[in-house]
Nucleic acid binder design. Structure first.
Length: 681
DNA sequence: ATTAGGG
DNA sequence: CCCTAAT
């Protein structure tokens, strides 16, 4: 009555955004967790707190009216409106008296409304709001809980219970709960996730777009237009409501009295603060990670033509999914690798699905939490972001079917590194448009609007070349390549391997859409890449365009590259290859690896003359040691014998720098006739 | 670009 | 296999 009176006084109410649930991993296990983390629950908690206040306000009169066994509402004056779906769903506030227990119950007042109106949307559409009750004793609800799905939390020395249906009196429940099955059943349902408590997706009804309109008793507002309430639930942050424009500002403090910018009603302030920080930290880590500095050694991913089947094109948008583990021991490399792996799996390389829609950062909410308690007109409204993932530029990767998964991973890794190797910054896309002006405020940009925030996304963009590299590209100087002054003139930026492979069997290319951003001074890979695929590209690459030209390798080679470039995938020599090698060496000697390569491995692009030289070295070694010590695919002893013979022969003849078949095999003094190979070619 | 060797 | 000094 009192309250009704107040409502009837013409109070218009406030608008409170529903607080969506946080990421799963921020949730904690516990009795209140599910509901608390759920946006619905958050809203409910708001309601509950209000209910508590209502109760408190009217407690004296309400309690005095209590009559045993009579559950007549003693007042009905609060109205809650939900207009998220364009329809207004009013809820009524009631107080029910149960014995010594006073209750204030919010319930869906469907009866008194248009029958066409749906019940208050819950996480699940088929779920009605349920009831929020306030009790003086936790005991009551603990008993109720045995048979009813409900959430109980403490509010201002009251115990607020939210359940998906009207709770029964403690007495009744006591009876029912004597049946042990009920409790078990309840438990099971809880674990399975009841419709009401089940986690909702962000796009569920209780999303940021939804609003609760709370019609609150003006009496709850102090002279400064503040509505205050205190949550005492575990480490529940303190909350304060303040009037702000047409809405309510919610401010939460953690136990340290520090204001949290996220206004989600979460179990632990730490918990819901962390994702953000984690993300930031991770980004920072990534940025500073040495793995970002280097460029891929594309050459290493050449495959022999013989290996090449029909190139298998893989075009994927990849994104980093920043996991939201709360236990965020950050192990740079490990984490990073994991992430890349995640990219792969997420991208569905092994499946048909090209799932990844452009990942976007979803603005979960636009809480307007006040910077200061009790300051009605706090200037700072906070915009809360829940970043599910940050998009990285599209990758275009081509690998042969015979490539291993491991090499694919590395390839992707390197591609990513190449893109971001020079550093990265975060680009902001709002409604598909880039937000370039870093100086504008979120407010000015419109990023404080819930609707607009829906279309917000972030992406990582290369920032390299802004500084030195760009200069290097155009004018190779000793500055650019201190470690290798001699090379700077030859390969200003691009690794020679890049150009070589680009039109051969390149495994990595960067498509034009790779970089969606055009940050000032951020050169676009696209420009060069597309062109570069032509044989002439080298010029384009090494000669910077009028604007900034992005080198495919945005870093100043060497130093950086050596830090992360993966070694080539190991490719043990087959017996056949060994045979070919031995044969060639027998004829050409041990000092002409290029010739050996040309003669016996011309088509094996992945075997360089250095490789052959190395292999010969190991062959000699292998032949020297006992068979038990050898590893890998066994090489026929016959071949090893020839290796030894040829090695001995050519060692003596030092025929390393002679012209072709000149060192006469006839000079062979070794008994193994097989060691010598009169050149017949 | 190759060669020769150490790692 | 990688890295590099020396050719």
């Amino acid at each position: 009555m009192v309250l009704k009176k107040r409502v009837d006084n013409g109070f218009n109410g406030f608008r409170v955004p529903v607080i969506p649930k946080g990421p799963r991993s921020t949730r904690r296990r516990g009795p209140f967790n599910k509901a608390a983390e759920d946006g619905q629950a958050c809203a409910i908690e708001v309601l509950a707190s209000l209910a508590g206040q209502l109760l408190q306000e009217s407690e004296s009169s309400a309690c005095s009216n209590a009559s045993e066994g009579n559950h007549q509402p003693s007042f009905s004056q609060g109205v809650i409106e939900h207009d998220g779906q364009g329809e207004v769903v009013p809820l009524k506030v009631e107080a029910i008296h149960q014995g010594s227990c006073a209750e204030s119950t919010f319930k869906n007042d469907v009866a008194s409304q248009n029958s066409s109106q749906k019940p208050f949307p819950c996480a699940k559409t088929d779920c009605s709001l349920g009831h929020i009750s306030v009790n003086n004793s936790s005991e009551c609800w603990e008993k109720v809980e045995a048979g009813v799905k409900s959430e109980i939390f403490e509010w201002d020395n009251k115990f607020v219970n939210y359940s998906n249906r009207l709770v029964q009196t403690p007495e009744k429940l006591r009876k029912e709960s004597s049946d042990g099955n009920i409790k078990n059943q309840y438990k099971q349902e809880q674990e399975a996730g009841s419709s009401c408590f089940r986690e909702s997706n962000l796009d569920d009804k209780c999303s940021l777009k939804d609003h609760l309109k709370l019609y609150v008793s003006p009496a709850l507002i102090d002279s400064k237009n503040n509505i205050k309430s205190q949550f005492h639930r575990k480490s529940f942050p303190s909350a304060s409501f303040s009037r702000h424009g047409n809405g309510i500002k919610l401010g939460f403090r953690d136990d340290d009295e520090k204001f949290l910018r996220c206004k989600k009603v979460s179990t632990k302030s730490k918990t819901f603060r962390s994702p953000r920080h984690i993300a930031h930290r991770r980004i920072r880590n990534l940025m500073s990670s040495k793995y970002w500095k280097t460029a891929p050694k594309l050459k290493d991913y050449e495959l022999s033509r013989s290996d090449l089947g029909v190139p298998h094109y893989l075009k994927r948008k990849t994104c980093y999914g920043f996991e939201r583990s709360q236990h965020n021991a950050i192990v740079k490399r490990r984490k990073f690798v994991d992430r890349v792996s995640g990219v792969i799996s997420d991208g569905g390389f092994s499946s048909e699905s090209v799932s990844n829609s452009p990942q976007k950062v979803t603005n979960v909410d636009k809480p307007s939490s006040s910077a200061k308690l009790h300051v009605p007109k706090a200037k700072d409204s906070y915009v809360k972001f829940s970043i599910k993932s940050i998009r990285i530029p599209e990758l275009y990767i081509e690998v042969p079917e015979t490539a291993t998964v491991g090499s694919l991973k590395r390839t992707i890794m390197e591609a990513v590194m190449a893109i971001l190797g020079g550093g990265a910054h975060v680009g902001v896309l709002l409604q598909g448009k880039k937000v370039r002006d870093d100086n504008r405020t979120l407010e000015q940009t419109g990023m404080s609007s819930n609707e607009i925030l829906d279309t917000l996304s972030f992406m990582l963009e290369p920032t390299s070349l802004q500084a030195s590299p760009a200069v290097c590209v155009g004018e190779p100087s000793s500055q650019c390549d201190i470690s290798q002054p001699t090379r700077s003139t030859e390969t200003p930026v691009l690794d020679s391997g890049v150009t070589d492979t680009l039109h051969d069997s390149p495994l990595l290319t960067y498509p034009g859409n790779l970089i969606e951003s055009n940050h000032e001074s951020t050169s676009s890979l696209a420009d060069t890449t597309v062109d570069k695929i032509t044989p002439d590209s080298r010029a384009l690459v090494t000669v910077p365009g009028p604007t900034e030209t992005l080198a495919v390798v945005p870093v100043s080679q060497k130093t950086k590259r050596s830090e992360f470039v993966q070694r080539r995938t190991r490719r043990p020599f087959s017996v056949a290859e060994v045979e070919a090698l031995v044969h060639a060496v027998e004829e050409l000697g041990t000092g002409r690896w290029r010739d050996v390569k040309l003669r016996a491995f011309e088509n094996a692009d992945h075997r360089t003359y250095v490789d052959l030289k190395d292999k010969w070295k190991t062959l000699v070694h292998t032949a020297t040691i006992s068979p038990q010590q050898r590893r890998g695919e066994p090489v026929p002893q016959e071949l090893l014998d020839r290796v030894l013979a040829a090695h001995a022969f050519w060692s003596q003849h030092q025929a390393k720098q002679h012209g072709k078949h000149q060192a006469g095999p006839g000079t062979l003094k070794i008994t193994e006739a097989s060691a010598e190979r009169p050149c017949v070619c």
